[in-house]
């Protein structure tokens, strides 16, 4: 009965795929529960305020820079909000020992992770939509833009789950996450024309930037394929990593580390 620490295997892929096929109601209820908790913690009020603030800022930015400012704001805030919020949420639930009763129900750690990730992506999409729609209206590639925000949010929140799983305090999470955050933001150097290099294509966040920017500069089909495929693959791999860390550092603390 050895613990299985491989984080990418056929069992994992089948579980990942099976989330779409079975027990949608459990996932739907999990997402709804998470949204309710996030609402109660004031996340929605906070982002209503933040979005309003960005709207004002965008109105103050000269019109020739407004599109770039929208891409920059969307990429650096609403798209990554889950990365930071997930740390707070997991730390609170860890501190209150809520995982014990939660996992004494059919709710598995996989559902727990996806409920958090998808619920926070709702907030990302809402905030990004408000900022974009109130500034530019419904543009031709708005849906592609939202898909970019959604996939980026999923990727960053999964990264946050993996980081938070090992941390014991909110302060520890923020100090560790700032390192992960800084590394993931490297492609901004190229986007801001500070240092050009094709190496940014290795960063999944380069794909995020391409898709988010496509609302103003439509992507070539190959660029689009690269960006969407890379973000999807990165999210699958990050789910495996986050899940592995979750079992290793959170479930093993409660139980013996054996997957349920």
């Amino acid at each position: 009965m050895k613990q299985n620490n491989r984080w990418i295997d056929m069992g994992l892929l089948s579980r990942f795929a099976s989330i779409g096929a079975c027990q949608w109601s459990l996932l739907r209820n999990g997402i709804w529960n998470e949204i309710r908790i996030q609402f109660r913690h004031g996340f929605y009020y906070a982002y209503a305020l933040v979005s309003a603030l960005y709207l004002i800022i965008l109105q103050l930015v000269p019109i020739e820079y407004r599109e770039s400012a929208n891409v920059f704001i969307t990429f650096t805030d609403p798209s990554v909000l889950g990365f930071f919020f997930i740390g707070g949420l997991i730390m609170i639930e860890k501190g209150q020992h809520l995982l014990d009763p939660l996992f004494m129900t059919p709710y598995s750690p996989e559902y727990y992770i996806w409920s958090k990730v998808l619920s926070l992506s709702v907030l990302s999409v809402l905030s990004s939509s408000i900022i974009h729609l109130f500034t530019f209206g419904f543009t031709a590639h708005f849906i592609t833009f939202l898909c970019g925000v959604w996939l980026t949010s999923i990727m960053f929140t999964l990264l946050g789950v993996g980081v938070a799983a090992k941390c014991t305090t909110v302060n520890e999470f923020f100090s560790v996450s700032s390192l992960y955050g800084a590394i993931s933001m490297v492609p901004l150097l190229g986007w801001l024309n500070l240092w050009e290099s094709p190496i940014y294509l290795l960063w999944p966040t380069q794909a995020s930037l391409l898709i988010i920017q496509s609302v103003f500069e439509p992507l070539h089909i190959m660029e689009g394929a690269y960006a969407f495929l890379y973000l999807t693959v990165a999210s699958i791999l990050l789910f495996g990593w986050a899940r592995h860390r979750f079992y290793r550092y959170m479930i093993s603390i409660q139980g013996g580390g054996k997957r349920l």
Partner: peptide, 19 residues
């Protein structure tokens, strides 16, 4: 252990929805 910021009713509704 419960979600402290939720009411008793909301807590039970949440856990109930997981079955």
């Amino acid at each position: 252990n419960f979600y402290m910021r939720l009411t008793a009713r909301e807590n039970l509704q949440m856990f109930r929805s997981l079955y």
